[in-house]
Amino acid sequence: MKPPEKYNPAVLFVYFLILAGLVMFAADPVMTAIAFVAMNLTAIAYSRDGLGRAYVFFFIIFVLTSLANPVFSHNGVTVLLVINDNPVTLEAVLYGVMTGFMILSVLLLFRVFSTLMTSDRLLYIFGRAFPKLGLLISMTLRFVPLFGRQRRKMEDTQRTLGLYKNENAIDTIKGKLSVLSAMTTWGLENGIITADSMSARGYGTRQTRTSFSMYRFERSDALMLAIVVVCCSFIFFGIATDRLKTEFYPRIRLQPLTVYAIFAYAAYAWLAFLPVIARIRDRAVHRKVFGQD
């Protein structure tokens, strides 16, 4: 198994898409629990920084979503208490808690998605289907840092020319807006060079441009893709035929642990933990080959 970054972006994307679908739309407490543990570990393994602050935000979301359900949903038979003639039921509370965990898992999943699915990976996938849009996105990604740098330069120059002279909030806002306006002119006027540079290199010569990328699709990618698809088909089948169904209303009825369910949960766990497993394996291999870090 290769480290996840080395797989073809299409494989990564399909993997994330399927996993996100399962985490987002499958309403089963066991699967939610597996996803929650797995996504936490994955986020810790792959996030670069700022995870601490994110968890504060996550906690607030969790509390809000868990509380919201019993407020709005009065289904369920086990009444815990009555507020303003509205019953608060155990089933609704538990469903709320599960939804809270599910939302946290999704947020964590997309954090990892954002780290791994870098712009050139996404461009590889969508550039093939939409080559012109792909080009637009690539151009924008090139211009964003260019504009940022030019804006700083312009701010510096204008400071020496007497912009921001009164050092109060209104003056600052006015100044920033004039810089933004001047930046618009700068970008639009100089953009003509970029446009000429595109035409000079044959842009618009052919109706369909090739969408080139350095990524390759190799045997290991095909293998991984096949395994992921087989695993998720197995789980999908289970969900569709109600073999993996937990009912919350009117009363909680957990999914009995059939052989099918055990295999399906195992497959789901394998899918969910895949990036973590890959990272651990990768570390171990590195240590073996290159010695202690």
Partner: peptide
């Protein structure tokens, strides 16, 4: 190409 560039410039402004 010129329209492409204008769209890009406007997008960059919005992103910033």
């Amino acid at each position: 190409s010129r329209r492409m560039v204008i769209v890009v410039v406007m997008t960059v402004l919005a992103v910033i």
